[in-house]
C-alpha cells in the first residue's frame, strides 16, 4: 500500500513506540547486568559506569559455560536427529508408492494433537528404567520423532519433480543415493527451517531437563538460570541478570541470523495447517 507523508510519520511513531515497549525487558536486563546493587535499589535506568564484574560473578556462581556446551550438544543432536529421521520418513511417504503410506502419514500427523506433557510421566519412567537420567541420550532421543517435521518435508518433497525420481531410478540410482544427492540438496531451505526450529525449541526446553538432570554434568543453561534464582535467599539481581544476558545473547544472535529460515518454516506450517 502506498501511503501519505502524514501516515508515514504516524507509522514510524507507532513502530518506534512499540519497539521500545517490546524490547524494554531485554534492554533493561542488559542495563541491570551492568549496574551495582545500589543502583538497582534506587531504580536507576542507566548504570553510572559499565561494570563487568557481574558477569564474572555469574559465571562463578553457576557453571554457565559448561551448561551452554551441554545445551549446544543436546540441541545439535536433536536437530540432526530430527532432520535425518524426518527426511527418511517423508522420503518414504512421498517417493515410495507402497500401500498404506497415507495411513501412516495420517497416523504420524495425528500425534501432533498429543501435548507432550501428556506423555511425560511414562517417558520419565522409561528414561529412569534405561538408566538414562543425567545422560545426553536421555535428554535428546525422546525428541527425534517430530511429526511437524515430517509434515513440513512431505509438503516440500511433493513439489519436487517426480520425473527426476523416475529417470534416476531407471539409470540405476539407488533410493538412498537419490535422497542424499538430489532430494536433500533441493530441499536445503526447508531443511534449514526445520533445523532452526528444532535447535531453538530444544535449546529453550525447560521441563524435560528439569526432570531428567540431577547433576551439573549434563544440565542445560535453562536449568542453570533456575539455579541462579534458587541459590541465595538474598538474590544478587545484577549477577542474575548477567547470567540471563549470557544465556540470551547467543540465542538472540542465532535468531537474528536465521530469522529468514525460521519464518519460512513456520509459514509453511501455518498456511497448510
Amino acid at each position: 500500500m502506498r501511503i501519505s507523508l502524514y501516515q508515514k510519520g504516524l507509522f514510524y511513531f507507532l513502530l518506534i513506540a512499540a519497539s521500545v515497549l517490546m524490547f524494554f525487558p531485554i534492554v533493561y536486563a542488559v542495563l541491570a547486568s551492568l549496574m551495582t546493587s545500589e543502583e538497582i535499589m534506587t531504580g536507576k535506568l542507566f548504570p553510572a559506569s559499565f561494570r563487568f564484574d557481574n558477569f564474572t560473578l555469574a559465571l562463578k556462581s553457576v557453571p554457565l559455560m559448561k551448561f551452554m556446551l551441554n545445551s549446544l550438544i543436546i540441541s545439535l543432536t536433536v536437530m540432526l536427529g530430527q532432520i535425518i529421521v524426518c527426511c527418511l520418513a517423508a522420503y518414504a511417504i512421498v517417493f515410495i508408492p507402497f500401500k498404506g503410506r497415507n495411513f501412516i502419514f495420517f497416523l504420524l500427523i495425528s500425534t501432533m494433537m498429543i501435548p507432550w506433557e501428556a506423555t511425560m510421566i511414562p517417558n520419565y519412567l522409561t528414561i529412569v528404567g534405561l538408566n538414562w537420567v543425567n545422560t545426553y541420550q536421555g535428554l535428546s532421543l525422546p525428541f527425534f520423532a517430530l511429526a511437524f517435521g515430517v509434515f513440513l518435508l512431505r509438503q516440500h518433497f511433493l513439489t519436487l519433480p517426480h520425473e527426476l525420481h523416475e529417470s534416476a531410478q531407471l539409470e540405476g540410482c539407488g533410493r538412498l543415493r537419490y535422497l542424499v544427492s538430489f532430494v536433500i540438496p533441493l530441499s536445503m531451505p526447508m531443511l534449514s527451517a526445520l533445523g532452526v526450529y528444532g535447535f531453538l525449541t530444544t535449546w529453550n526446553m525447560y521441563l524435560w531437563p528439569l526432570l531428567t538432570t540431577t547433576n551439573n554434568n549434563v544440565r542445560t543453561v535453562q536449568i542453570g538460570l533456575k539455579m541462579m534464582q534458587a541459590q541465595e535467599t538474598n538474590t544478587n539481581w545484577p549477577v542474575v541478570m548477567a547470567g540471563v544476558v549470557i544465556v540470551l545473547v547467543p540465542t538472540l544472535l542465532f535468531l537474528f541470523l536465521s530469522l529468514k529460515q525460521l519464518r519460512r518454516g513456520l509459514m509453511s506450517g501455518a498456511l497448510k495447517g
Binding site: M22, F23, L225, L255
Partner: peptide, 14 residues
C-alpha cells in the same frame, strides 16, 4: 520477532 529467541527461563527471570 525477538521474543521467539527468549527462552521461557530467561524471559521469566527478567
Amino acid at each position: 520477532s525477538s521474543t521467539i529467541g527468549v527462552s521461557v527461563a530467561a524471559g521469566s527471570m527478567i
